[in-house]
């Protein structure tokens, strides 16, 4: 395939929303959420490597890129991501939990 001819913009036109008094917190929030995503992806990559090794005993990069989880495995991964997000952002849930307990 040729050189990419077009670069799609990342920034959305319009004012960026802020939710905290200090916009630095909003920026940190964005960075942390992106990092959370990258860690999840790294986890997926490790999982792919492990699964291929389990099955074949050898591995190549092409195997990893071509790897497609079956439905059962995708469900397990989804569950893992779901719980992971729940753990990372648990702090946001604690107030509601306390109110429900009281």
């Amino acid at each position: 395939m040729s050189e990419k001819s077009v670069h799609l913009p990342l920034r959305s036109k319009g004012k960026r929303a802020t939710f905290y008094k200090d916009p630095a917190v909003d920026q940190l929030f964005a960075i942390i959420t992106m990092l959370t995503q990258e860690l999840s992806v790294a986890f997926d990559r490790i999982e792919t490597v492990e699964r291929i090794l389990d099955k074949n005993g050898v591995i190549s990069r092409a195997d990893i890129e071509a790897y497609k989880p079956d439905e059962q495995e995708e469900t397990e991964r989804t569950q893992r991501r779901d719980e992971y997000i729940g753990r990372i952002f648990n702090i946001l849930r604690q107030e509601a939990e306390a109110l429900l307990d009281s």
Partner: peptide
Amino acid sequence: HDEYNRQRFVSILRKRVLMDFAGD
């Protein structure tokens, strides 16, 4: 591989946001 898993992450994150966190 990584692009696909980034997409999956966002799908699940959105589900969390719209269901559990919105419930809280």
